[in-house]
Design a binder for these strands. Structure first.
Lengths: 137, 137
DNA sequence: GCTGATCGTCAGTGATACTGACTATCTGTG
DNA sequence: CACAGATAGTCAGTATCACTGACGATCAGC
């Protein structure tokens, strides 16, 4: 049975949610990936591109284009790392933090509607199961 | 927190599992997508390409290349549909059914090792939650 | 002060999926 | 029966995405 196969379920859940989330974020001019970068950068201190990339699980060459796009929109700015000049520290701008807040709100809302068939308990169960499956590797 | 975001969890679970499953299937000369096609075709009667595509959730133009590859490997064969000559009915060959059986075994095994951190109950819980989230749309 | 490693960047590549157009065929209407 | 519109499979072109390999700049250890 196809619908019992993990690969099928994950792939379709992922793509369906990505589509819904992209549509919800479009009015902000943000993609889901860009919001994810803002989220990573929203922590206490600025990160080098590579650090941001590894937290996000993307390649450092992919991060270049993501930061390019965000910088072009004025949401982040690259700055030199005083202690290691190979690195760019990426900071959120004020506008970047605004969009991060607004985007997070929208993302949470998209999650709720996507998982409308599940109770709040089941949602956290689902996330916890996925997290545990991922943590092992 | 990034690891709480559904999109992040789904994307990484999907790609990690796809990678593992592809590696496990490689000795058979099959990709995960090809095995999925064989699975869909493994039902009681032959399907037209479009029917197979919609059950799999892929585009009909994508199915063309998938069937091309499987036919080149001798695992399926295209035949005319006697009642609608626009359609190709796609049948499993004997070898195709052998590889479907072997591939299903390997896929199940890959699923078990991928979800090794979860109990059997939790695995079916996870699948059932994903299935319910998908069924709504 | 050298050697090897790391960071950001860029060009090129491969996989994936889609759109649009085309042919052949079917279906329904008159 | 004839014709219009819809559908199946195919193909070319395009967009996205992520990766590899290379490069210059910089760092760290001996």
């Amino acid at each position: 049975m196809l619908a019992d196969r993990l690969g099928y379920l994950l792939k379709h859940a992922q793509s369906a949610f990505a589509e819904r989330s992209a549509a919800a974020l479009a009015p902000l001019g943000l993609t889901g990936r860009e919001l994810a970068v803002l989220t990573v950068l929203g922590g206490s201190e600025a990160l080098a591109q590579q650090q941001a990339a590894s937290r996000l699980g993307v390649d450092r060459t992919t991060m270049v284009a993501l930061v390019d796009a965000l910088e072009a929109k004025g949401l982040v700015r690259r700055g030199p790392d005083p202690v290691d000049r190979r690195r760019n520290l990426v900071h959120l701008t004020e506008r970047g933090r605004e969009l991060l807040d607004e985007g997070s709100r929208i993302h949470a809302e998209a999650e709720r509607t996507f998982l409308a068939a599940l109770t709040a308990d089941e949602v956290s169960q689902l996330k916890s199961l996925l997290r545990r499956a991922l943590e092992v590797r």
